[in-house]
Design a protein around this nucleic acid. Structure first.
Lengths: 200, 200
DNA sequence: AAATACTAATGACAATTGTCATTCTAATTA
DNA sequence: TAATTAGAATGACAATTGTCATTAGTATTT
């Protein structure tokens, strides 16, 4: 029997996932969490074999939970279950060392198969992510990402410059370059586009 | 037997919803669509009693499908099924004349109950929407939301003004008011904050 | 009937933003 | 080795942005 914990903030999917996975005769749902903090608590208390983690959840993201589980050297295996193959998320998840990364586009049967596979010690990643069809890579350099990310918080070029110990003009050059690279009109649209693509 | 069509673009939820609703002995799933266009085609072809419609779908939104169904005077009843906190949608759905508006936060049992209730001729709206009133905590007026939403697409004040047939100065006044209301520094941060809160 | 909120407008001002040309260094790649 | 890329800077220019004071019509509340 594979003991599974589900962490997903959308009630309907959480419930449905719970019911349907529980129908599988080799899988047992030991708990359901609706946010990251509860998920971490329940992992510690219930010691499940596998935890399914959504990324965007209140209080603590799935990636933060995964990081904490790995940091504390807990044996629970982690499968990230998320809507989008945001390249940033996927990269981070791999870096943290999760055992699986699946998309909510697949079927529950596929998910059950992945759970069994991970239980056997394998790693399971959604093929869409590996063969990079979604993975449009980030056209922005590290520096540009930093600058745009600060701009998204409403910081002016001058404020960004003093925060990064760079000149005012440099920041404006970077911003101009960012706008050009993303093919947008101004910093506001740049933030929108970069966020949609998971580039910042 | 209540004949139900499901239109939902997220594969996992669509499949789960299909399986679990089909378990109910008085409900029959006659079809599943993954986008708005397919949903409309299937409504015409299969003539279900009730159609569950997600809002954010490719090609045609659930609200557009609902509008078309009502416009053509098709007898199929519509239940909108969507994620919490997206402003404007609820109002628009009521205006179109849908029979139900439920949140993906609830359970499948609740959804099944709503389907039965709608089948009997009642209208079912998620209580969170009626009481909790999502629009209430949105500090922005209709006009301000429109302006900020256009700004988030990178439009300049001048472009927004000509799109809304207002003067350039008026848009800048609105933007100034928006920035003040949200307690932010500029339009870029205003977009970030408003999006995080689901206000635009 | 009076007060309030929303919509809309004008003009003026200072600050911020975006663009361009041009230069320089360090690191990487062909 | 030569070429390219990332990072950093300067100065100048025009356009855009944000603020403020002030006015006004229309609805809705009190």
């Amino acid at each position: 029997m594979i003991r599974v914990l589900i962490a997903e903030d959308q009630g309907m999917l959480r419930g449905a996932l719970g019911s349907l996975l529980d129908f599988e005769e080799d899988i047992e749902i030991v708990g359901e969490a609706s946010n990251g903090k509860d998920a971490l608590d329940m992992i510690l208390k219930l010691q499940p074999d596998i935890c399914l983690l959504d990324i965007e959840m209140p209080f603590m993201s799935g990636l933060e939970v995964a990081e904490e589980v790995k940091r504390r050297n807990i044996s629970c295996k982690i499968i990230i279950l998320t809507t989008f193959g945001r390249p940033g998320y996927f990269e981070q998840a791999v870096k943290v060392g999760v055992q699986g990364y699946m998309l909510k586009d697949g079927s529950i049967e596929e998910l059950a198969e992945s759970i069994r596979s991970v239980m056997k010690g394998k790693r399971e990643f959604a093929p869409e992510l590996i063969f990079g069809s979604i993975q449009e890579d980030n056209p922005l350099t590290k520096r540009e990402q930093t600058v745009l990310s600060l701009a998204s918080q409403g910081k002016t070029s001058k404020e960004i410059s003093s925060e990064l110990y760079l000149s005012h003009g440099t920041i404006r050059n970077y911003m101009s370059e960012i706008i050009d690279k993303l093919g947008v009109k101004n910093r506001t649209e740049a933030v929108t586009v970069a966020k949609e693509n998971g580039w910042i």
